[in-house]
Design a protein around this nucleic acid. Structure first.
Length: 887
DNA sequence: ATGATCACG
DNA sequence: ACGTACGTGATCATA
């Protein structure tokens, strides 16, 4: 018969934590609870040989028990942060073990376990062992369900079944609840009846069987005990209720999801290395796994069909059952790459369709194309955005996509740089996938192997996509990221693809003209620099420039890099008074940057046929949830200095009679801060739509508005920036060029006024220590493993990140939400206007002139109300003939 | 490939 | 005492 192990995750983790000394790895992360848990898992797997496995966790601050009894678990000391920080690691560990895990907002692990054991009792087709440190769970024991209680920390367990409970306590499992009703439980703050301990309670139950029985026979008792029991009858009833495990948690229970197939050595070995479990690594002797974990574990046994003209009908037949696909796009930029082929996972066969077959344009391929374009399907696609873009250039509009494992992996851990399918599959302990690099080579060594090999590899990928859907869905669910994923990120992927496909028109002639102007000016500056230096050298080389400045001309060394002298702008500005050449170098740098990056670089990206650039937004790069932009990067086009800002003149509408429209959020990050900190002063400033930097200056310096001079406002602005970045006196002093002491006193004054902000900063850091991560308003999450590091630098960095990420990340959530809504709204209103760019707090559109008026209303309306905060959001709109004019 | 520099929010 | 502001990408020089 099948055997299921159910672990009470919180109970075992906490037993392990208190039983073992406080170990920590080299980055200061504590690991003792995870270590104890690991040894227990290894022992259980070895001894019990489970076919099914689940670890349940408590979730949410308040369970339904708190509604009935506010003091529930009230007396319990808060979980120490050294334990709290280990839960994310523990969850990763379980993934590496291939063990399923579950938690549900508002319920405790016991309730989940109670519900599953009830189902096991009803079906009678599963033997269950419940592992916990909590005696209450004995109430779940039955013919099919045994309870393993930890003893002496976690090194031993005592196995309870109903006969054993009978022998030991002379009670039935149900009576365990009554026992607790009478005696209470100090650790959960359940009162019971004062003066009744285990001895008395057992005696009473042997006579009267239940709490109700005891209460209705108090007449037969005498003296003090009778008095106490009658007096606390209600307490006893309530205590019994609290001690009763809820066995009707609303959850789907299917044994299939709990199947345990054993662990994959490499995934586990990787995890142990990360945790620095050296003794376990040696003891386990992961056969064939070398230090880098490079050895290949078994690959999946799949059936791969290489589709050719002949086999096309078979493929078409199978399409109805396809639930996952992978489009192999070659090259970093999907707008400039080509498609090798498409692999599909159907019921128990995978198909590989070389893209040549699709491009041939034979009539037989049409049903396949039609299927790709049909919205009437639900298929998982790895990196949907990339696939969509590449297919679009081939005239195919991919629709009916329902899940993207890459996007899911990013939400589950946005700092994970390894988002290749092979890495994700490994993390989820799926059968091994060869890394693409091993199959195709990389960079200059890229080559396409024989079709059969490609087919085999890509079919495995499609199979992995299919296998990832369910476990990743569960993980998203347990992180409360369901809405973030389905309502925001997944639809956004399609919105981004459509923005990129439209592209933005570049006036090549104007750009070239600006280029020749720059070339002329650079030429003459170069000459004067060489003259002043008395020799020709490569000004672009920091090394050669350093030699000229600090050795030949003997200028003072301000700052060093790890390779030599620093010559960055900050240094050069300090050196300007010493030598006229320094000013020339600064100007040279500015113009050379414009020339190489923004004139020549941009021209290389313009499509010769359409005169447009198509940037590629990356949705899975930034740790905070922001987008990034490549090929070309259109999120860093100059604006701060007039010289560079002129570049914006070359970005124009794609049609005559159209205009550019820009809409940017005003102070979105500080508004977000006002909302999440609920700081009274900061909220007031935004409710009254004041100039936030002037207002900050007034409050910090304690003066009237009329007394705020430009210098005071500048300082206040720098403080506001610092607050958003996670302030430090050193950072502020650098920025304002003041001493650390002065900076510290600015900060002190700021916090004296904005008390709510200080409280937020303190609490978010505490929260990060407790949970090991911070979240945004829409539950985007960022783990901060170094928050407890003993290294001051690592820890401080993590603390500033804890302060900044919820702010920057929530702002990112908001504009992403606005983009999804904007896309819908444009369709709804039947407008021709097109959304083209996103620059973190700004959206850029091209609009027909007769839509300028309505767009000037609609755009801010959507953006300002994308998400309602405790303070209003404000959007400034402008239009013009090009991006420069729309400012 | 990596570091230094500089463009943006 | 420690030594940094948060998040990106492109270009160039140099190992």
């Amino acid at each position: 018969m099948s055997k299921l192990i159910l672990i009470d995750g919180n109970s075992i983790a906490s037993r392990a934590f208190f039983a073992l000394p406080l170990l920590s790895n080299s980055s200061g992360l504590h690991t003792n609870a995870v270590y104890g848990f690991t040894t227990m898992l290894l022992r259980l797997i070895d001894e019990q040989k489970p076919t099914h496995f689940l670890v349940a966790f408590d979730a949410g601050k308040a369970t339904f028990r708190h509604k009935d009894y506010a003091e529930y678990k009230g007396g319990r000391a808060k979980m120490p942060s050294e334990l709290g920080e280990q839960f994310p690691l523990l969850k990763d560990l379980l993934r590496a073990f291939g063990i399923s895990q579950f938690e549900l907002e508002g319920y405790e692990a016991d309730d989940i376990i109670g519900t599953i054991t009830r189902v096991a009792d009803e079906r009678g087709d599963m033997e269950v062992v419940v592992v916990t440190g909590d005696k209450d769970m004995l109430q779940l024991a039955s013919e099919k369900v045994k309870i393993a209680l930890t003893r002496k920390g976690i090194s031993e367990v005592e196995l309870f079944d109903p006969p054993y409970i009978k022998a030991k306590y002379d009670l039935t499992p149900q009576q365990i609840i009554d026992l607790k009703g009478l005696m209470g439980d100090a650790s959960d703050n359940i009162p019971g009846i004062p003066g009744v301990g285990e001895k008395t309670a057992l005696k009473l139950l042997h006579e009267f069987e239940t709490v109700e029985g005891v209460l209705s026979h108090t007449a037969e008792l005498k003296g003090k005990m009778r008095e106490k029991i009658e007096q606390h009858a209600d307490d006893a009833r309530m205590s019994k209720e609290l001690a009763t495990i809820f066995r009707e948690v609303p959850m789907e229970t299917s044994w299939d999801e709990l199947v345990y197939n054993g662990y994959q050595g490499p995934a586990l070995a990787d995890m142990f290395r990360k945790l620095e479990f050296k003794s376990l690594l040696e003891k386990m002797d992961f056969a064939g796994v070398d230090a880098a974990g490079a050895d290949q574990p078994p690959q999946a046994d799949i059936k791969a069909v290489l589709v050719d003209q002949e086999k096309l009908p078979e493929l078409i037949e199978a399409l109805a059952a396809v639930d996952a696909l992978h489009v192999e796009v070659v090259g970093d930029n999907p707008h400039a790459g080509y498609i090798l082929g498409i692999a599909l996972h159907s019921t128990d066969v995978c198909y590989y369709v070389p893209f040549d077959l699709v491009k041939d344009g034979a009539a037989e391929i049409e049903p396949f194309k039609a299927w790709l374009e049909s919205a009437d399907k639900a298929v998982a696609v790895f990196d949907q955005h990339r696939a969509e873009v590449a297919l679009h250039w081939q005239g195919i509009c991919l629709r009916g996509t329902s899940f993207d494992p890459m996007l899911a992996a990013y939400l589950l851990d946005p700092t994970e740089s390894e988002l290749a399918l092979s890495g994700i599959a490994k993390k989820y302990a799926l059968p091994a996938l060869q890394p693409d690099e091993d199959v195709f080579g990389k960079g200059a060594k890229f080559r396409v192997p024989a079709a059969e090999l490609v087919s085999e590899h890509l079919c495995r990928k499609a199979h992995a996509v299919h296998s990832l859907v369910e476990p990743m869905k569960r993980d998203l669910e347990s992180n409360e990221m369901h809405r973030l994923y389905y309502d925001l990120e997944l639809p956004l992927a399609a919105v981004l693809a459509s923005m990129e496909q439209k592209g933005i028109k570049v006036d090549r002639e104007a750009l070239k003209e600006y280029g020749s102007e720059l070339a002329g000016r650079l030429e003459s500056i170069m000459k004067s620099i060489y003259e002043a230096a008395g020799t020709e050298f490569n000004i672009n080389s920091p090394k050669q420039l350093g030699e000229i400045l600090f050795e030949k001309l003997q200028l003072p060394v301000v700052k060093k890099t790890k390779t030599g002298y620093s010559t960055d702008a900050e240094v050069l500005e300090k050196l300007e008074p010493y030598h006229p050449m320094v000013g020339h170098i600064l100007l040279y740098r500015t113009l050379a940057k414009l020339q190489s990056t923004y004139v020549e670089g941009l021209l290389k990206e313009v499509r010769p046929d359409t005169g447009k650039v198509h940037t590629y937004y990356r949705q899975t790069i930034a740790a905070t949830g922001r987008l990034s932009s490549q090929y070309p990067n259109l999120q860093n086009i100059p604006i701060r200095l007039e010289e560079g800002r002129k570049i914006r003149k070359v970005f124009t509408p794609s049609k005559p009679g159209w205009s550019m429209l820009t809409a940017d959020y005003s102070q979105i990050e500080l508004r977000v801060l006002a909302h999440i900190s609920q700081d009274e002063k900061l909220m007031e400033a935004f409710v009254n739509d004041m100039d936030i930097h002037t207002k900050t200056a007034m409050d910090v310096f304690g003066v009237e508005e009329s007394a705020v001079d430009s210098n005071m406002r500048r300082s206040a602005k720098a403080v506001n920036f610092g607050i958003v970045y996670g302030i430090s006196d050193y950072g502020l002093s650098q920025n304002l060029n003041i001493t650390r002491k002065e900076a510290a006193s600015f900060i002190e004054q700021y916090f004296a006024v904005f008390k709510g902000v200080r409280q937020y900063m303190d609490e978010i850091v505490k929260e990060a220590r407790q949970n090991g991560y911070v979240t945004t308003l829409l539950h985007r999450r960022r783990y901060l493993p170094e928050i407890n590091a003993s290294n001051f630098n690592l820890r401080s960095f993590a603390e500033r990140t804890a302060m900044n990420t919820p702010i920057q990340g929530t702002a990112a959530d908001i504009i992403k939400l606005a983009m999804v809504q904007m896309d819908e709204r444009l369709k709804q209103e039947g407008l021709q206007s097109r959304m083209l760019l996103q620059v973190h707090d700004e959206l850029v559109f091209e609009v027909p002139n007769d839509e300028v008026e309505i767009m000037t209303t609609i755009v801010p309306d959507v953006m300002e109300h994308a998400l309602e905060l405790g303070v209003p959001l404000k959007v400034d709109v402008d239009t013009g003939a090009n991006w420069y004019e729309a400012k």
